[in-house]
């Protein structure tokens, strides 16, 4: 049976206001709302699609964070078979290399054919997780993937290039693939089904061990962008703003 491992991470929800910690060199995590990394969500969907297409065991591994259990049970409701939570991750964001080292040890025990995760996470500053994981596992890596089919000892994957071009890549398995988008949009599952999973599925805890937070790169400062020339905001109610917009379009000769 094909073994697929998916790494799913929670990241700050960008719809919320982000704040900088008093240290001035990290995000303030206290008030941050976390959501699943969009591309990891696509990786989960792609894994479930592959399972439905030709059978597979899907294991989801997630570093501990506020809301991680709900997220894991949601993946079970979608069809994931095994759930692993990495505990002892701590407040400070570890380097991706250190996270990859910890994950690699667990993944080696599972001995998967395919490891999927999001091509990037928007809060990453110390490299991308997926290619680092690939190196540590001595597996090939290809990212920006938007479709996979599995064959005998190999995967055919479609890698996105600028301008809508796809590069068809043949990759020897086992491999790590960085998912950009799944072949179908990520499915929704009913809350009732997630609740049911909370009673029936179980999450295995694994200790993350010692995680490194220093990548060797010194961060001087983290801050919100200082904007030189922000948009001129059109003020007023909807009707007024609409007529101002029309005046601008007329000025530009577009209407």
């Amino acid at each position: 049976m094909t073994e697929i491992v998916v790494i799913a991470r929670l990241v700050p929800d960008l719809v919320e206001e982000l704040e900088i910690a008093t240290s001035g060199t990290a995000l303030d995590l206290a008030w941050l709302r976390l959501i699943i990394n969009e591309f990891d969500n696509h990786a989960i969907e792609q894994a479930i699609i592959l399972k439905e297409r030709s059978g597979a065991t899907v294991t989801i591994i997630s570093p501990e964070a506020e809301g991680v259990e709900d997220m894991l049970f949601t993946t079970a409701a979608k069809g994931a078979d095994k759930l692993i939570k990495l505990t002892g991750v701590g407040e400070e964001k570890p380097t991706n290399l250190s996270m990859a080292q910890t994950l690699a040890e667990i993944i080696k025990e599972i001995n998967p054919d395919l490891v999927l995760t999001g091509v990037q996470a928007h809060d990453d500053f110390t490299g991308d997780l997926a290619p680092q994981l690939a190196d540590l596992l001595d597996m090939p890596y290809v990212g920006y993937i938007s479709g996979i089919s599995l064959g005998d000892g190999k995967a055919t994957a479609y890698k996105e290039y600028p301008g809508g071009i796809l590069a068809e890549m043949e990759i020897a398995l086992p491999a790590v693939l960085g998912i950009q988008s799944s072949e179908e949009p990520p499915r929704y599952v009913a809350i009732s089904k997630v609740r049911q999973m909370m009673n029936t599925a179980s999450i295995e805890d694994r200790d993350a061990g010692v995680l490194e937070t220093d990548s060797g790169v010194v961060i001087d400062r983290m801050y919100l962008p200082e904007v030189a020339d922000r948009a001129e905001m059109l003020e007023g109610d909807e009707e007024e703003v609409a007529s101002k917009l029309i005046a601008i379009l007329q000025d530009l000769g577009l209407l």
Binding site: P12, L14, L18, I20, L27, H122, D123, F125, V217, V218, I219, D220, R221, M222, Y223, L224, P225, E226
Partner: peptide, 9 residues
């Protein structure tokens, strides 16, 4: 963070 955070290093 999608352009919402800057980092000097």
């Amino acid at each position: 963070c999608g352009g919402k955070i800057m980092v000097d290093s």
